[in-house]
C-alpha cells in the first residue's frame, strides 16, 4: 500500500499514519487541504505526524479539537507522540515508555 496518512478534520495539524512511514513523500487522505506531506523520520502505523509546524506550547489539533499541548517545537513531517506533547489533564502518561506505552514507574520487586 502507498505510504498514506489520514487527516480527519481540515483544522488538524496532525494526521494518522495508515501505513508505516519512512522519510519521503506521504499521501494525505481524509479532510486536509494538502494532498501530500514530506515525512522527515520513520513513523509507526497508527501514530501521528505533523502536517504543519506546531510551536512549543501550542495545541496539537486532531478531529478539529485540541488533543494535547506541544512540549517542543514540532517540525512538519515529524513524529508527534509522548516525547513532544502531553495531555492537558493526565500527568502520568508523560512517564510512559515512548514506544511500548508501558509504565516505567511501577515496581515489580
Amino acid at each position: 500500500m502507498e505510504r498514506t496518512a489520514f487527516q480527519i478534520d481540515a483544522r488538524d495539524n496532525v494526521a494518522t499514519a495508515l501505513t508505516e512511514l519512512a522519510p519521503g513523500p506521504v499521501r494525505l487522505a481524509g479532510d486536509g487541504e494538502a494532498e501530500q506531506v514530506e515525512a522527515v523520520e520513520p513513523i509507526p502505523r497508527g501514530h501521528k505526524l505533523a502536517v504543519k509546524f506546531i510551536a512549543e506550547g501550542a495545541d496539537v489539533v486532531k478531529y478539529g479539537v485540541p488533543i494535547g499541548v506541544a512540549t517542543a517545537d514540532i517540525m512538519p513531517g515529524s513524529w508527534v507522540h509522548l516525547h513532544v506533547m502531553r495531555s492537558a489533564y493526565d500527568e502520568r502518561s508523560a512517564h510512559l515508555n515512548l514506544r511500548t506505552g508501558a509504565p516505567e514507574d511501577t515496581r515489580y520487586e
Binding site: 492537558a88 502518561s93 510512559l96 508501558a102 509504565p103
Partner: peptide
C-alpha cells in the same frame, strides 16, 4: 485516566485524543 499502555503503543498520545 482511562488510557492504557496498549493505547499509547498504538499511537494515541493523550486521553483527550482517545476521548474524541
Amino acid at each position: 485516566f482511562s488510557v492504557s499502555p496498549g493505547n499509547f503503543a498504538g499511537g494515541l498520545s493523550t486521553i483527550e485524543e482517545k476521548s474524541m
